[in-house]
Design a protein around this nucleic acid. Structure first.
Length: 576
DNA sequence: GCCGTTTTCGGCCCGACTGTTTTCAGTCG
């Protein structure tokens, strides 16, 4: 089991303990342990075996023993026991905003309600308001929340989970049998930020071993259907996996077809038809009898007289026309990124020291990095008081000389307060090299108030970047009500950059908004919001969004040279 | 459950908001 696997088990345990109403500090201890295990570079299973885990701060005797039990048996009895007390749907109910573990537990205990569907029915029937501490209003809010939940489909799974499963499955298949080619396809290959299922395409001659093989894969959960050229099953995290198997010579066309999107593929076919070309399984058939057999996707696009269209762009948002006219954007690659302008250290809610985080960004080849801990109002994240803030600024100043090859920008993730005012006065803000502002409070404000609040921050003249502009968290929280068109307009006008937050559960802005921002002339920053050095790798997911948004190097401020970035930041400070 | 210690218990990052109460519990970040 990998480190993330151990972490997942402790997180699940924490979830059930919450349902049970256990001591919150005990729950926090398990959650913290999960974070620690996940971010360790060393192998957890090995450390547990050697009895080294309890030497790590935050992990004691009990958690070490539980980790050893998981390493030994693959499961945790304490968790299995808890799971048997609650039907699986009870935990689901906590996904409804406003329903926490206590309410879910109460509703289950008193009414026997054990799924979101049953919850909806109970609310409709007016049963919830009979419970202690619940009234008409709570019932209405729950109904509204469920409705919204269905509308926005919170059940989609973040790309990062799909990647882990996809890689694991491909490794497993290729290490146990001979395949010609194998690839992730579908929306995961197109890098959609949240996907419904995981599609895999295999090119091989003899597919007879595949069903038995997937059933022996560690993340296999249950078979859905099984045919000669197609195997569908559920895997860990409730992911539906769909494996298509084709002959090696059919692979390029199958790759194109299964990657989609459906509309993009259909459009390619009809374009082919206009040229007198019909799509076959492994070639293009011309009316005059000629057969073209491309051996790659690129070859197919070439035969259709267009540029190769990267999977991220295959969404029918103008890519076919652009490819025909050879004006597709030059998409960003990881080498374009020269710095990360939003990350946290143990001065606020990050896990590592400034030195450790800066070293890690340097190892990624970056030329600059901004240290942006939380500002004073965000108490839960140990936001910096003025005193600690000055201490940190002084420390950053001293550290700057110690780091060669990377420039450290002093920054802050600044709270945009309820009324749109900022968490520190201008006299303090002017001391930072960079100010990243964001909303973490009063999420339920009506749209006009929230929009005005963010716009006030943009107009302040003290803010360089608006972080995670919509506030959504995939599978957990909707974005707040905000008029993003207006925010983009103001950001462009006042030369304030909007962030693509690369945190896999945020991906905020998403690709649609990021593209609109770019088209209206607003700059973009792609930042990780990392809270430990491992999370600095999330930059990859921000790049996915940027590529889907058609962004090019000039649009993204952290692809700029340090001098260009500093000049841009300096302008605002001169105006102030 | 973990930690630290003034060493075996008491504290653990905190506060706003909401809806239910009539003084507070639950949720959220």
């Amino acid at each position: 089991m990998n480190n993330a696997g151990f972490a997942a088990i402790f997180r699940e345990l924490a979830g059930f303990l919450e349902l049970k109403g256990e001591n919150p500090f005990k729950i926090r201890a398990y959650t913290r342990a999960a974070d620690i295990l996940e971010s360790l570079d060393e192998d957890v299973a090995q450390l547990a075996g050697e009895g080294q885990l309890k030497n790590i701060k935050g992990i004691g005797k009990t958690i070490e023993e539980k980790t050893q039990e998981i390493a030994r048996s693959g499961t945790l009895k304490a968790l299995e026991d808890l799971k048997s007390e609650y039907p699986p749907g009870v935990m689901d109910m906590t996904k409804v905003p406003g329903v926490g573990s206590r309410t879910a537990s109460l509703i289950f205990r008193e009414l026997g309600v054990a799924s979101i569907d049953e919850l909806e029915k109970a609310a409709h029937d007016g049963k919830l308001k009979t419970l202690p501490g619940m009234g008409k209003k709570s019932e209405e809010n729950i109904l509204k929340a469920i409705e919204k939940l269905k509308e926005e489909d919170m059940t989609r799974i973040p790309l990062v989970i799909m990647d882990e499963l996809g890689e694991s499955l491909i490794d497993f298949i290729t290490s146990h049998t001979e395949v010609y080619r194998i690839s992730v396809v579908g929306s995961v290959r197109r890098r959609k930020e949240a996907c419904r299922d995981l599609d895999i395409l295999v090119g091989m001659d003899d597919s007879s071993r595949i069903p038995d093989l997937v059933m022996s894969w560690g993340n296999f959960r249950g078979m859905i259907s099984c045919e000669e050229d197609r195997v569908t099953f559920t895997a860990a995290d409730d992911v539906e996996v769909d494996i298509s198997i084709v002959k090696p010579e059919d692979f390029p066309f199958a790759l194109l077809a299964t990657t989609g999107s459906k509309q993009h593929y259909a459009s390619l076919k009809s374009h082919g038809r206009r040229l007198g070309l019909e799509f076959g399984k492994s070639g293009l058939f011309h009316k005059n009898g000629e057969i073209i057999r491309p051996t790659s996707e690129a070859g197919i696009y070439e035969a259709l007289g267009m540029e190769y269209i990267p999977p991220e762009l295959r969404e029918m948002t103008g890519e076919i026309e652009a490819a025909l006219e050879h004006r597709l954007p030059k998409l960003l690659v990881s080498e374009d990124i020269r710095g990360d302008l939003h990350m946290h250290t143990n001065w606020s809610d990050g896990r590592e020291s400034i030195e450790s985080m800066v070293e890690a960004t340097k190892a990624l080849g970056y030329r600059y990095v901004a240290v942006t801990d939380h500002s004073r109002s965000l108490k839960i994240a140990r936001g910096l008081s003025e005193t600690r803030l000055f201490e940190q600024l002084e420390m950053l100043r001293q550290l700057q000389d110690r780091f060669t090859g990377i420039h450290v920008l002093s920054g802050i993730e600044l709270e945009i307060l309820k009324d749109g005012s900022l968490d520190y006065p201008d006299s303090i803000l002017s001391r930072f090299d960079i100010v990243v502002a964001s909303v973490h409070s009063a999420f339920r404000q009506p749209e006009d108030i929230m929009t005005g609040r963010i716009i006030r921050a943009i107009r302040s003249g003290s803010v360089d970047i608006i972080a995670h502009p919509t506030g959504r968290v995939l599978g957990r929280r909707f974005g707040y009500d905000v008029d993003m068109d207006a925010v983009i307009e103001e950001a462009a006008r006042h030369d304030v950059a909007l962030e693509i937050n690369a945190y896999p559960e945020r991906m905020d802005l998403d690709s649609t908004w990021a593209r609109k921002a770019m088209e209206r002339g607003a700059y973009i920053a792609i930042n990780t919001d990392a809270h430990n050095s491992k999370e600095l790798h999330f930059m990859w997911y921000g790049l996915d969004v940027a590529r889907r948004a058609w962004l090019e190097q000039p649009h993204v401020i952290n692809t700029w040279s340090l001098s260009k970035l500093q000049a841009w930041l300096g302008q605002r400070r001169e105006r102030a």
